[in-house]
Simulated scan of single mutants.
Amino acid sequence: MIVAPGATIGIVGGGQLGRMLAIAAAQLGYRSHILSPEASGPATEVAAAWTRGDYDDWESMRRFGEAVDVVTYEFENVDPHTVAGLAGFVPLRPSCLSLDVSRYRPNEKQCAERMGGATAPWRTVRDPAELAAAVDQLGTPAILKTCMFGYDGKGQARIDRREDADGAWQAIGAPSPQDANSAPAILEKRVDFLAEFSVILCRGADGAIVVWDTPENVHRGGILDTSTLPARPEVLAQASAAVELAKGIAEQLGHIGVLTCEFFATVDGPIFNEMAPRVHNSGHWTIEGAVTSQFENHIRAICGLPLGDAGLVVPKVRMKNLIGEDAARWREILSDPCAHLHLYGKGETRPGRKMGHVTWLG
């Protein structure tokens, strides 16, 4: 099914990813309609319409779906069961399967393992007693994470000694499991890695796949700080295996749109960390640094259009997030002729909040 230019694209989520998706959609002649529980957000200024409603509110979701021609989402922390209802009367791309796998950490670990990918040793834990047993099994150092709703280092706590386990459980605020088949937290053995990197690909409705060059990522305080291309040789040596795994995951899920998989480069090869069924922070550099950005190719894919070239336009690219007060340096950044500044229009500056990013070419 092709959704022709002039149609309206529904985007679940009104943050900066929704903003950049709406900008890319407008460039191709589409209108965007946002669904978000907030009264406004970064996507407000560039969208044709905005429905305010909670992500688990079926009535708001239904009205939103009836007003658009195709639906996508900018983040995975939404209820797949509510979103699934949309698929009965409007195309939903990527599908609920991608959403269901990526929003629950054990599911994405198992998905990668079924495809032959390596993951850090892990255990699901439902209460402090299970956590203590998992620490004994895996050893330390380890990281305790919520199974859902974690991002930018939130919902995570380090366990360097066995005695840290109770404090870590309290720190992440893990709730009781709501059903017997789920767990509120996952314990992962900490990986001794050489570098972090991501594989960003886009799979079209016809099954065609394009892959962007592999960025090397540096995180600070759990938040992505920089993405740099080309990555160091030790990363590039492992990129092809990681790309094949990511492609396999996309095929297995029947994914349509951008899919991002994050990896650790280790002495034993790439270790799969997590995935996102959407455009991703480590791909922001593609706006200026690639022939076709991740945002444009995502719009192309969900609308059934041919995918654009994902190749680099220059040999070297670097992207840096502007966190909190970093965005106040806009005048200094703009004085650099090689810098491309993106500010997200967020009203309140807070520590740890992504306010924008800057990309340097060359």
Rank of each mutant, 00 (worst) to 15 (best):
L97C: 04
G257Y: 08
D268R: 10
M1Y: 02
R62L: 15
E188Y: 08
P177S: 03
W122H: 15
F89M: 13
A22Q: 01
G6T: 07
P175C: 01
K189D: 13
A301K: 03
D152Y: 01
G65P: 12
P306H: 06
L144H: 15
L259S: 01
N217A: 08
G167F: 12
C111D: 03
G304L: 06
E108Q: 13
I299E: 11
A118Y: 02
L322S: 10
T82L: 01
V210A: 06
Q294N: 02
H340G: 03
P175L: 00
E262F: 01
R203G: 14
R31I: 11
M148C: 09
N281A: 00
Y30E: 03
E66D: 09
L28S: 03
D152G: 07
A339E: 00
A134D: 03
V191Q: 13
A239P: 05
M148K: 10
A47I: 13
P42K: 14
Q170A: 15
G117P: 12
R220K: 05
Y151C: 08
M1I: 03
Y73W: 01
G222V: 02
I256W: 11
M355C: 12
S102R: 04
I287F: 04
L341E: 01
S335A: 14
L86V: 04
M1G: 09
D179M: 10
G65N: 05
V90R: 12
T359V: 09
L259I: 15
T266I: 00
L86K: 09
K316W: 08
V78E: 02
G269C: 13
E325Y: 00
R114P: 07
A241Q: 15
I11F: 02
P121T: 09
R62H: 14
E74F: 02
H255I: 11
C96I: 13
E38D: 06
S102M: 14
T51E: 14
D179T: 08
K316Y: 05
Y55H: 10
C111Y: 00
E216A: 01
I302K: 01
T124P: 11
E348H: 09
Y30T: 04
G6K: 05
V235T: 11
V68E: 09
A47D: 08
V218P: 01
D166H: 03
V358E: 15
A239V: 11
G117F: 00
I271K: 14
S32V: 14
A310V: 02
I333H: 05
A328N: 12
E113K: 00
G150M: 08
Q238L: 06
G15R: 12
G10C: 07
R93T: 07
A208C: 06
L194M: 11
